[in-house]
Design a protein around this nucleic acid. Sequence first.
DNA 1: CGCGTTATTGACTGCATTCAAGCCTGGTGG
DNA 2: CCACCAGGCTTGAATGCAGTCAATAACGCG
Lengths: 237, 237
Amino acid sequence: MKPSMVTIEPYGHFCSDCAVREFAVCSSLDPSELRQFEHLGRRVHFDGGKTVFSEEDITTSFYNLLKGVMRLYKLLPDGRRQIVGLALPGDFLGMNISGRHNFSADAIGGVTVCQFAKAPFGRFIEDRPHLLRRINELAIRELSQARDHMVLLGRRSADEKVAAFLLGWRERLVSLKEPSDRVPLPMSRRDIADYLGLTIETVSRTFTKLERHGAIEIIHGGISLLDPARVEALAAA
Amino acid sequence: MKPSMVTIEPYGHFCSDCAVREFAVCSSLDPSELRQFEHLGRRVHFDGGKTVFSEEDITTSFYNLLKGVMRLYKLLPDGRRQIVGLALPGDFLGMNISGRHNFSADAIGGVTVCQFAKAPFGRFIEDRPHLLRRINELAIRELSQARDHMVLLGRRSADEKVAAFLLGWRERLVSLKEPSDRVPLPMSRRDIADYLGLTIETVSRTFTKLERHGAIEIIHGGISLLDPARVEALAAA
DNA sequence: CGCGTTATTGACTGCATTCAAGCCTGGTGG
DNA sequence: CCACCAGGCTTGAATGCAGTCAATAACGCG
């Protein structure tokens, strides 16, 4: 049977075999807290392309990404899109102060999230400052990434953007202990373009240029980093 | 006597007359906590142009901006600069997870900050989750601003960038209860350009164009918004 | 096998940058 | 008080990088 687009597993009893337990928000919880925590979240699966939440939605849930990749983006009224982040397992989504998500989030390929209803999660945090501290850490880390990305968007050339993207993406995957020189790129050229503030044509041309120069090889579903040093030089640190 | 570039006031006894008490981090503290808090911070004044902290500095202090405007920026090795934020009174600076500031911060015009040594401040937070919660709120607000700015940098034209900047800046000043249609711009054209990912020439040309169209008037140290609706239309929401 | 989608490649355009003068303003010293 | 200078700002002309428009190629899917 073909899986439905959104599959919900029953509540509870899953933290023990959770792949992101060590580095997600839940890393701050001790074993007994973790048992209570299990009952707050449920695993939900989204097929590729599905929208998990939208920019103007009222926030009813937080999400802990367990598996897969998500694009976080904002749209201008005329349809121009800027991807403001690519989420990987361990990322925590949904915090805001306006009561609304201020960006949209789609699954890129299949995705599994741990979904928490806002109110009970809020109550759970209430008397667990170490969890709040952990959430704060993650927010500050994202803020730092956001600032780096602003530099890329505002001050780097197309070549530098693409090179920096490949290295940065590889780096993030490595920290999730994926292998190394073969860099999978599950997102489309359009996604890459919208992440880097470019057009698909420019991304495509730049990939081809890098390949012609022997820096990378374009393979199915990703690239192979043939000459990391050369790519680093192009990224202009 | 001409004031020295950095003036340090003695510790303590200043929260009571602090202009940002209501909306800065300290808004989360009750009166008795505030009295303790006073002894942690000291006011420091920086003249215009002075650097308060630099990108690669090890973090030894946090800062609560009391008065003035600061530019927060990152530099590329070849000197290109991207301003990643403009800080106004009430903003809290210095949080990071790497132990180093990951951006630099200069005073634009004279600035007064409330400076907290990292260790005692950390200890003070320890058993005051409401303060941590407040810091988290501010981080999330900044994250939201950062994402908006990414859209501007990656997907907006020069005209849209400048128009959106003027409106956004006015909005922030209004929320600090500055008047309205006269928008002071204490920062230089270079600062504006580096904030918007443009060159000074483009910023200057765009200002002139807006003025010729009757949307704004360029006045000394700022602009006057003659036709806000027109500027909003140009900003493309 | 054929269709629709995604990616690549090419030719041309145009927006923002670069290069280059000139202007205006504020501060300094005669 | 005014002349001069330095730095910031404005304006103009020319260039070039990335975007647009368009055609083709490759792929995934039924």
